[in-house]
């Protein structure tokens, strides 16, 4: 600015140097680096890091509660004599805590994608080396990673607690590994669904509502119909009904393949045959989410 260039006779002490424009000749790290940066920024953002203090409150409370409950379970297991196993299976933890996970997803998925859409920042990304596929992959991976951190951290606490309580090592390790695979699947599935819903509701409030509604209504409906089926004695239908809500789909997969006890009425989870269908549904939903997101962003280029 011209106000910065003072005449040559200005006293040395009061002179403001105008260093002028400097060109940048350092490295340009390109597309892969930009994608990684977007991933880490989005992942940190999901926990409010690098954002305002206010936005840290909710994710941190949710993470805290997830860990606290695990710590209480561990405390109970360690303090109670003659216990040989944790009072709650690793695979069961996320199912029991699903309300918190839904809340986290509902708050953070819109934060991650709705802002860019609502305030039309997306074209700024696509006018840079980064491309649509990079943007979608980075956002998807970041959301899945955030849900994974939220769901896997308490499992680690449970596992460490179980080792501390000197429960059978092989048993616990197997259960822990199964639990980790299960929450990994859950994270990718939930992340995808959350982002798709958020990407179609640029107004953040609606995005939050859409995610909560989708998760709780489908789960509520499936559980209710399953309970009716159980009461009316048509227990064969129960295992197929589970396909219609994200939580029960994960429950079905882990019942069939990951040694989990089904949370369905009467423990009527799918067997291996039906389990394959469950797994295919999970994979189809994940691939579908990715496809829908790619389509969504084709329209919002420049």
């Amino acid at each position: 600015m011209s106000t910065h260039t003072h005449g040559g006779r200005t006293p040395e002490a009061t002179r403001i140097h105008n260093i002028g424009y400097r060109h940048y000749d350092g490295p340009r790290l390109g597309r892969a680096y930009a994608r990684r940066s977007l991933y880490s920024q989005s992942l940190r953002g999901a926990f409010g890091l690098g954002r305002s203090a206010k936005s840290k409150v909710l994710p941190m409370i949710l993470l805290g509660v997830m860990c606290l409950v695990a710590a209480i379970i561990v405390a109970v297991a360690v303090a109670t004599p003659n216990m040989t196993d944790l009072p709650l299976e690793y695979t069961r933890y996320a199912i029991v805590m699903q309300a918190l996970i839904t809340l986290f997803l509902a708050a953070q998925a819109p934060q991650s994608v709705s802002r860019d859409l609502r305030f039309k920042s997306v074209p700024l990304y696509f006018s840079r080396p980064i491309e649509r596929v990079d943007y979608v992959l980075a956002k998807f991976a970041a959301m899945a990673s955030a849900v994974f951190l939220l769901t896997a951290t308490p499992l680690v606490i449970l596992y460490l607690g179980a080792l501390l309580a000197k429960f059978d090592f092989a048993d616990q390790t197997k259960g822990f590994a199964q639990g980790m695979v299960s929450v990994a699947l859950l994270s990718v599935l939930f992340g995808g669904i959350g982002l798709v819903l958020a990407a179609f509701t640029p107004r953040r409030g609606f995005g939050v509502a859409a995610v909560i509604a989708t998760m709780t209504i489908t789960y509520g409906a499936v559980s209710t119909v399953q309970a009716i089926a159980w009461e009316t004695g048509s227990s064969g239908a129960i295992q197929w009904l589970g396909l219609f809500s994200p939580v029960t789909v994960i429950d079905g997969v882990q019942t069939a393949f990951l040694g989990a006890t089904s949370a369905f009425p009467g423990g009527e989870g799918p067997g291996t045959g039906a389990g394959v269908v469950y797994l295919l549904v999970v994979l189809a939903l994940v691939a579908g989410s990715y496809g829908v997101l790619m389509r969504r962003y084709r329209k919002v280029g420049l």
């Binding site: 350092g26 490295p27 390109g30 680096y33 930009a34 840079r128």
Partner: peptide, 13 residues
């Protein structure tokens, strides 16, 4: 800063 990184500039730059 975020947009600079999206253009490929290292964090400090």
């Amino acid at each position: 800063v975020h947009m600079a990184r999206m253009s490929g500039l290292p964090p400090t730059a």
